[in-house]
Amino acid sequence: MEKESKNSAVVYVLSDSIGETGQQVAKAAISQFDAGKYETRRYPYITEKEQIRDILEEAREENVVIAYTIVIDELKDFLEERASEYNMKTVDLMTPLIDAIGEVVGRKPRKEAGLIRKLDEKYFKKVEAVEFAVKYDDGKDTRGIKRADIVLVGVSRTSKTPLSMYLAHKNLKVANVPLVPEVPPPDELFEVEPKKIIGLTTNPIKLNEVRQERLKALGLGDSANYASMDRILKEIEYAENLMKRLECPIIDVSNKAVEETAGIILEILQYKNEEF
């Protein structure tokens, strides 16, 4: 079979990942030519020499340019050698830029396939976790309790929301539920495994100070029932009794930074070996 006429060409884009970057570059290059028939064909997830061999066999019948975003040296070398045997033009879209960056920063590249996809997946997982924390903050929607990786429970001003957001940036879905004596706890709390629930408590004197400052920030007097010691003691007693019923771990956050409490939570729930 004869190759197509010289006014046509096909750009084969080979990638060890999705191949979108290479295809966009190829299309941008093709757009610079006014006449002729040009197209791109994308071949993602190239991980074996056999794949390259089959693709190049197919390409022998066409006027072809091989563009690739493959970072594994063994596969790159095989591609270049086989393409040379067939007198095919090849363009390495990644190595020149990787080498230039390496020279500037003084570090060697990881040469690991699909890293951008892994980074994107991690980023979107974090965004999803943050959105989850916002949606299921402060018991606004108890349906989140069953979907959460972690459920925080405690009285008002025990750092539930800051902790939820901090843990969300660790890619964990967190729901938090305020415990108030006059409000029955949601049924969902008793329908999930106790091991994913964390109870937060605090020193009543410390909580009194925090709540008084909160009232001042809102322009309210510090004599409101919300900050009274009797009310605080009642809330803490109620919350700790409920936590015992739930059989969940309890953390005293009195003198702990959010980061410290989060570290304890991750350790309790055995997330300490996860890569965040």
Rank of each mutant, 00 (worst) to 15 (best):
D187L: 14
N241V: 00
L266G: 07
E213Q: 14
K234T: 12
A227V: 03
C248W: 06
N255Y: 14
Q212C: 11
N255I: 00
P204R: 09
V192L: 01
Q212G: 13
L172G: 08
P249G: 08
D252P: 12
E259L: 01
V177C: 07
G219D: 10
R245H: 02
Y226P: 06
K196F: 08
R231N: 15
I205G: 01
E240Q: 09
P204C: 10
R245D: 14
A262V: 02
E182K: 13
E260A: 10
R245K: 15
G219H: 03
N171E: 15
V192C: 04
P249F: 10
L200F: 03
Q212I: 03
K244H: 08
S228G: 05
K234E: 15
D230A: 06
E193P: 02
M243A: 10
M243T: 03
Q212N: 12
S228H: 05
A224S: 13
P181S: 09
E209W: 01
M243K: 11
M243R: 07
N208F: 08
R231E: 12
P249V: 07
L266P: 00
E209A: 11
M229Q: 09
C248H: 11
V192K: 04
I236L: 15
T201R: 07
D222R: 14
D230E: 15
Y226G: 03
N241I: 01
D222L: 02
A175T: 15
L172T: 09
N203Y: 01
V180Q: 02
E237A: 14
I264W: 10
V180G: 09
P185K: 07
Y238N: 04
L220E: 13
A217Q: 13
P178I: 03
P181W: 05
L246T: 07
E259T: 12
K234M: 12
S254D: 04
L215N: 02
K234Y: 06
A239T: 07
K244M: 12
K216H: 09
N171F: 00
E193S: 14
V177S: 02
Y226V: 01
N176C: 08
E240D: 13
A175L: 00
K195L: 08
D230P: 01
G199Y: 05
R245F: 02
I236M: 03
S254H: 02
I250Y: 00
S223K: 14
R214P: 00
K196R: 14
C248G: 01
A257L: 13
N255D: 14
V180I: 15
L233H: 11
M229E: 09
T201V: 08
G263S: 11
E235G: 02
K196H: 05
I236S: 08
V174C: 04
N241E: 15
K173V: 07
G221W: 03
P185M: 06
N241D: 14
L200W: 07
V253A: 11
I198R: 00
N171R: 13
R214K: 11
A227S: 14
R211Y: 12
